[in-house]
């Protein structure tokens, strides 16, 4: 299964097609609708008007549909890694437990519970491999809240990877990380996605990071697409338009 997204009419007439295996950064000022867009893609939110299609299927229809279709929606979600801005981890559980929880959606209640209490050998080995891939293998059995912010974000990425996702969405994954670590994190995300052939959609505040690592940029402003294309083609006027402060914004800034 390969994910390809097609979203239409988010907030203000967005028409976006994302091919399987594409690496894409959504940039724009805060409040532009980046988070909303990502949540619609993940199937956590449904557009009031317009449709979000995944592999040609409308997510909202699945939710309204038969039991079988709702199961499909669950399956869709379970194969979609989402990295949240605030990690969304359980601070007082060990790293391994947080990672293992990524696959709950693909398991029955009992198996999920058992893997949480004590992951079996297969799970443990796989968790370690994923953690080593994101560079924190040694922390596998540490309490999550003893890790730094950047390390916790790596745990969140590991949890998403443990889902065996076909696509990875990350909403401002580096918002609470210092610039040097932020760069390393974005680099890691892109490298991992490229390596496994994942579709990667990352929303970023920092245009520089987006230009450096992503072949395709989508600029959002006030719910509309300002540009969609290669970072290198981006003209200065377009950048200015993206972050242009208008009257009432200036008042707040």
């Amino acid at each position: 299964m390969a994910h390809s997204f097609a979203a239409a009419a988010v907030l203000r007439g967005i028409d976006l097609r994302i091919g399987a295996g594409e690496l894409l950064a959504v940039v724009g000022p805060s409040g532009a609708g980046k988070t909303t867009l990502l949540r619609i893609l993940s199937g956590a939110l449904f557009p009031a008007r317009g449709r979000a299609l995944v592999d040609g299927q409308c997510l909202a229809d699945l939710l309204q549909g038969s039991r079988e279709q709702r199961r499909q929606l669950r399956a869709h979600r379970s194969r979609l890694g989402f990295v949240h801005q605030d990690h969304a981890l359980v601070p007082n559980l060990r790293v391994v437990q947080n990672v293992v929880a990524g696959r709950f959606g693909q398991r029955g209640l009992w198996r999920a519970l058992r893997s949480l209490v004590r992951p079996d050998q297969g799970d443990s080995e796989e968790v370690l491999r994923v953690l080593e891939r994101v560079g924190i293998g040694a922390k596998m059995f540490h309490r999550t809240d003893t890790l730094s912010g950047g390390q916790q974000q790596r745990v969140a990425i590991a949890r998403a990877l443990f889902q065996h996702p076909t696509a990875l969405l990350a909403d401002e994954p580096v918002a609470s990380v210092d610039p040097a670590r932020a760069r390393a994190l974005v680099q890691l995300l892109v490298a991992v996605a490229a390596e496994i052939g994942l579709t990667l959609v990352v929303s970023l505040h920092d245009l520089g990071l987006a230009r450096e690592f992503f072949p395709r940029l989508v600029g959002l402003r006030e719910g509309g697409v300002i540009f969609d294309g290669c970072g290198a083609d981006l003209a200065q006027s377009e950048v200015d338009a993206l972050y242009l402060l208008d009257g009432h914004d200036q008042g707040q800034a």
Binding site: P91, Q97, F104
Partner: peptide, 21 residues
């Protein structure tokens, strides 16, 4: 909510994401 987002049932998400918190 993150676990619900990965397709976990409410009970699973509760046991893995709320009760431990």
């Amino acid at each position: 909510r993150a676990l619900r987002g990965t397709g976990a049932t409410p009970l699973q998400a509760f046991l893995g994401g709320l009760l431990p918190v």
